[in-house]
Design a protein around this nucleic acid. Sequence first.
DNA 1: TATACGATTTTTGTATCCGATATGTTTCAT
DNA 2: ATGAAACATATCGGATACAAAAATCGTATA
Lengths: 249, 249
Amino acid sequence: MTSATPPSFRPRAAAPVYARLRDLIIRGRLEPGARVTEDAIALSLGVSRTPVREAMQRLVRDGLLVPVDGHGGGRTRLWVSPMDAATLDQLYRIAGALEGLAARNAATLPPARRATLARRLGSAERAFQAAAARRPLDYDRLFERHDAFHRTLVSATAGTELKAQLESIRPRVDRYEWYYAPLVGPDFAPTYREHGAIIRAVRAGAGESIERAVRANWVRGAARLVRALATAERKTGAATSSLSSRASR
Amino acid sequence: MTSATPPSFRPRAAAPVYARLRDLIIRGRLEPGARVTEDAIALSLGVSRTPVREAMQRLVRDGLLVPVDGHGGGRTRLWVSPMDAATLDQLYRIAGALEGLAARNAATLPPARRATLARRLGSAERAFQAAAARRPLDYDRLFERHDAFHRTLVSATAGTELKAQLESIRPRVDRYEWYYAPLVGPDFAPTYREHGAIIRAVRAGAGESIERAVRANWVRGAARLVRALATAERKTGAATSSLSSRASR
DNA sequence: TATACGATTTTTGTATCCGATATGTTTCAT
DNA sequence: ATGAAACATATCGGATACAAAAATCGTATA
């Protein structure tokens, strides 16, 4: 599911630390605004500060941690980055542009391989819809199935660099997905339609329309999440304004 | 109130090390395939291995250093990443997609600001052409002027996330630019035309065509560099095959 | 009571040390 | 002479030690 070590796992201790922290943030157990100190993490995970530092530097680059007082030079205290609708929108547009660029390549695939891709996308989509139909909804499974659809598309169309680039924004995208997806359902008909459009475009094999379909999926997905976020805020009363009151402990 | 903190920059050792190494690689003084060891850098720059390690990890994320493969699980020896036409092509397409996504926003700018942007782009382009007309050609200056054109465009149109994403591929893009730009000139008429098309599209204000123009610039720029690269290889006889023979000293 | 000053505590950045392991070299046996 | 095995070296990952900067908290004073 979410875990995957994109480039090549180098260190022995830093990788688990990174994976654990990233997961804590993505799943929301470390909320936006939570302070994260090297000592605390090192202590709680039973390693020294050295691998923790490496993991935290990587999380900064992922955009999951940010310096608390944004002075560009000295990277001092870090906290879990805030979440807001504007960032979500930007992020999803970027993902759409990149995945669209990748998917466009499907048009240049040999017809046989393109047909295979369309078939695999169809089967991934059916699995996703099946997961979405289960009651009670298992969001863990739903997330995984949804992700599988996009991974199928990307792995068949993106080159190494593009894959790496997509991986670099995945942590943040996943975080928004995890936070707000439960507020989107339980009706996923729009998503079905958009995925269906992607599959048909791949089958037809016109690069331009494949790219358009993929982009539309991301842009509209972002709109759905923003709507869910706004609704949630109206209900709970400015959920995001309590960010700075969190403590890491 | 407390004394307004002037940019109290605390000098960190890792930042200069990173900047220096990145520059050495981008400018080609550390060639593809050169081994880079923590000890050697630490010694030569007069710092300990700790900040050097941080810098090198960052360079790995930038794609300028890569682990030399061959030993599956163990440790990581790093060398300067190789350069090849396929990577160049992918990289430039990504840059085109991202910058195109940004530039598209120019269409939604208030007309006055859009006009200002078009004017600033025009003036940046004139500066670029002036630099390109100087004889002898100062590639350092040319590079800077060309970069300024794109920076003008991006800084006026891209959000924070998009800017960050573009920054993340800049080191590698710059490296290819530095390596092969001298082989492209001295006639930059195609570039003038493409930049001109971008400026006109911005002035007209149609998002779709702005994006197309920006993308075309990058895709065609990549093609020019690939052509230059191929020519250089034919002349020097497989320049890139000598990669693994470099020593770091 | 509010503010300014100061000491204590946190937390980060850098240096150094140690252990593990791949890599290269030398030596010995056949 | 050739191959293998033992040995030496290079280099990395992690732990620890130390210093410096910043934040926090308390106290004193106007």
